[in-house]
Design a protein around this nucleic acid. Structure first.
Lengths: 110, 110
DNA sequence: TAGTTGCGCAACCAGATAATTGCGCTTATA
DNA sequence: TATAAGCGCAATTATCTGGTTGCGCAACTA
């Protein structure tokens, strides 16, 4: 219960990832979201709670309904963590580029 | 036990993320990795097994030692999932850009 | 006002996780 | 050859997780 919430742990669950995708299009209520999955509204509510705790989602009250909307900013944290790795695969790609360039040069010199 | 391995679930664990970062720099053995954490070699081995199962890491045998190296390619799956969201925050940034441009224009027209 | 709808919260449960401990196997070293 | 080092695997355990059910409360509606 008093588990520290972590954004990576939040997106580990497939249902929560799907919720984020749906909400990205348009803010939705728990009931509306639940219709997209094979689970109860309460289960969706729990997922929303987790997402809200790590600020990936924000509730917006409207009468007795609650529209949850995406907080895109927090998603950047994942992107930030990924950054150094992205750098690595970009470098590898450049290395491959060099190899190809060398091969081409050799062929031209034939 | 025969749980389907998922890359998002794999990076949900902080220790596993740390392992990926360490290995990104240089291939390492389970023992060497364990020294960086407050856990046993066996625990690290289990994490490596999870990472290997979703092809984030690849074992390379060398005598009685096993060097685990990063398989950078799989990391792209995370990047791919993130792509549409990145698009969203880029759009918001552009919208902000538009707002700033409009404000500037209005100021110039004064 | 009475009944319905949309929610969140608490209790409970089965299955998954991470970590420890104890092996046994293989490879290096004295 | 005997001993030590590096591993992976299996069994065990405490904890976490996702799901369901049953409330109770606030807000619409007939």
């Amino acid at each position: 219960m008093e588990t520290r919430r972590d954004i990576f742990q939040a997106i580990a669950d497939p249902t929560r990832r799907a919720i984020l995708v749906l909400i990205a299009m348009q803010a939705m209520t728990p009931n509306a979201l639940a219709e997209h999955f094979h689970t109860s509204r309460q289960a969706v509510s729990k997922h929303l709670k987790v997402l809200a705790e790590c600020e990936l989602v924000k509730p917006e009250l409207s009468g007795r309904e609650i529209y949850y909307q995406l907080e895109i900013g927090k998603m950047k944290e994942i992107d930030t963590w990924l950054e150094p790795f992205r750098k690595i695969w970009a470098d590898r790609f450049n290395q491959l580029d060099d190899v190809l360039a060398t091969l081409k040069k050799q062929q031209n010199e034939k």
